[in-house]
């Protein structure tokens, strides 16, 4: 073997040492396989539904049958109740033991992870946001994320990475050692995924809960800012120190406590609070619609 061949062997050996950890690949594979199974099931279900519709249309209702609205058919292929808010991006690496604790859609779509049972945004945490436009990164350090230009800012045990993929993405980590390294590693693992959607737990006159946080699928709190009123739906009773006044809301007996009204309905607590009492609080709680299948399975789950 000559000198060039020896150098080639050594160079390839060096490259092999940089093989990525299999974790992200295995996670991505697991997700894709799951999605594939779901797709097969959905296609089969949609196919059976189509056959039933065709038989019904052709045999039973021949002249009187009106074809279904195409949107209804499409809705049948959407997971949950079809009210999913797209998140579009997902990380494939997070520090060990981190689970998801918050999803917000009020401004920039945001997801937060941290240790199981921790309050969202407390230390340590990882936050991923998709922005509409690039924030001011003057004074930030230049970096690279998947070959794309990026900027990093480190402040003590916190670091943020911003880069422009299809959208402007922002990964922030707080309360971790080697914050810069962790933030960049999370950012490198982020992949576009159009199928990641989130169905908020409730709706109020066409607007959906903007923020959902919790520690487990059956222990969560969601809210919507409705003008000056905060409308909330939660699995736990809100803190209402005595005295409480009885009030009829949603056809049940609820309570009024200062500027808050709350009622338990279907196992969930629905409440509205404002800086001053008004009958509008009761009206708003009356109008809250709980979605059929709220998407809370992500709460307390890792990647």
């Amino acid at each position: 073997m000559n000198d060039t061949e020896q150098r080639i062997k050594e160079a390839l050996g060096l490259l092999a040492e940089r093989t990525p950890h299999p974790g992200p690949t295995l996670n991505a594979l697991k997700r894709k396989r799951k999605r594939q199974r779901n797709n097969v099931f959905l296609i089969a279900t949609a196919g059976m539904a189509a056959v039933v519709v065709l038989i019904f249309a052709g045999v039973v209702a021949s002249n009187r049958y009106a074809p279904p609205n195409p949107n209804d058919a499409a809705a049948a292929l959407v997971q949950g109740d079809g009210k999913g808010v797209p998140f579009k991006y997902a990380p494939h690496w997070l520090p060990d033991g981190f689970v998801e604790s918050l999803r917000a859609t009020n401004m920039a779509p945001t997801r937060v992870w941290g240790p199981a049972g921790a309050t969202p945004y407390s230390n340590p945490s990882v936050v991923i946001r998709a922005h509409g436009e690039m924030p001011d990164v003057r004074g930030w350090d230049p970096a690279r994320v998947r070959g794309l230009e990026a900027w990093v800012q480190v402040r003590g045990d916190a670091a943020s990475v911003v880069w422009k993929a299809q959208d402007v993405l922002d990964v922030s980590v707080n309360g971790v050692a080697d914050a810069r390294e962790v933030a960049l590693r999370v950012a490198e693992s982020v992949r576009a995924d159009a199928k990641i959607t989130h169905t908020p737990p409730f709706e109020l006159e066409g607007r959906y809960a903007e923020l959902v946080r919790g520690t487990a699928p059956d222990s969560w709190h969601s809210s919507l800012a409705w003008n000056a009123v905060s409308v909330q739906v939660a699995t736990a009773k809100p803190e209402l120190p005595a005295p409480n006044e009885p009030v009829t809301v949603r056809g049940k007996q609820g309570v009024r406590n200062g500027n808050t009204v709350a009622v338990q309905d279907g196992g969930l607590w629905i409440s509205a609070t404002a800086s001053a009492w008004s009958d509008e609080l009761v009206e708003l709680v009356n109008k809250v619609e709980i979605v059929d299948r709220p998407d809370t399975g992500w709460i307390g789950k890792g990647i």
Partner: peptide, 18 residues
């Protein structure tokens, strides 16, 4: 892991390898 190692050497790009 062996497949990722081979793909990394082949592609010279760990992301493409993944």
């Amino acid at each position: 892991t062996p497949l990722l190692r081979y793909a990394t050497v082949l592609t010279c790009d760990p992301h493409l390898a993944q």
